[in-house]
């Protein structure tokens, strides 16, 4: 099952400039209603996005409900984005909502991996740069779209251009949309050989 590849994406960016945005906030547990990766977009950011707990009336103060950020596909946020619970539903909800990239100074580790496993690009940039990007787009977010170029590791808007770093493996997985399980299953012989030795070394396990 190949993943949705990520190469170059141009889209509306929405600033959610809070630190420590946790996965309970990205999708509250009560919004995970089925044993499924689908049907989660409506629960995205539910505690902030709607006026009532469990309700569906949009809170117009929340960034993703503002008309100027309609169809946002890139999030700008604060440090430690996606901390907390391991729930991959947070990433499935973002994906279904249409988010393709998230730019923040740092990410929760499990969340980061969940992103790269689902074709969402997490980009680490300093807080000052994230704020700068938010300012650069805010006058007209629908026009001032961000361009995210993964092969060249650059984020740009108009004349502004910032480079970001990403490790080689997640980059390749994203660009090529690879299925890591299929890749590892091709290494079954090496795994078998290791397992045999491992059991001799630690027969009690």
């Amino acid at each position: 099952m190949a993943l949705q590849p990520f190469t170059v994406h141009r889209g509306v960016a929405a600033p959610l400039l809070r630190i420590n945005v946790d996965t309970d906030a990205i999708i509250p547990s009560r919004e995970m209603k089925r044993v499924s990766k689908q049907g989660l977009a409506a629960g995205l950011f539910a505690i902030w996005r709607y006026t009532e707990p469990g309700g569906r009336e949009p809170d117009l103060n929340f960034v993703l409900n503002k008309p100027q950020y309609r169809n946002a596909s890139i999030l700008l946020s604060g440090a430690n984005f996606g901390c907390g619970s391991s729930r991959e539903h947070a990433v499935w909800a973002l994906n279904e909502f249409g988010i393709r990239a998230i730019i923040a100074p740092s990410f929760g580790r499990i969340f980061y991996h969940n992103c790269t496993r689902n074709g969402i690009l997490p980009i680490e940039l300093e807080a000052a740069v994230v704020h700068y990007l938010a300012e650069a787009i805010q006058a007209a977010p629908q026009q001032n779209k961000l361009l995210v170029d993964l092969p060249n590791q650059q984020v740009s808007v108009a004349e502004l251009k910032f480079s970001f770093t990403i490790e080689a493996t997640p980059k390749r997985m994203l660009v090529e949309g690879l299925d890591p399980i299929a890749m590892t299953l091709e290494m079954t012989e090496q795994i078998n050989a290791f397992e045999l030795q491992h059991r001799q070394r630690m027969p009690w396990l």
Partner: peptide, 28 residues
């Protein structure tokens, strides 16, 4: 003691002895 193989680039293939699951995320 769990390194099966160093992969291309920066990743490693690490052997896992035990896997635990629960109904909230293990189900899916």
């Amino acid at each position: 003691s769990h390194l099966v193989e160093q992969l291309d680039g920066d990743a490693a293939l690490i052997y896992i002895d035990r896997i635990l699951l629960h109904e909230r995320t293990g189900s899916i």
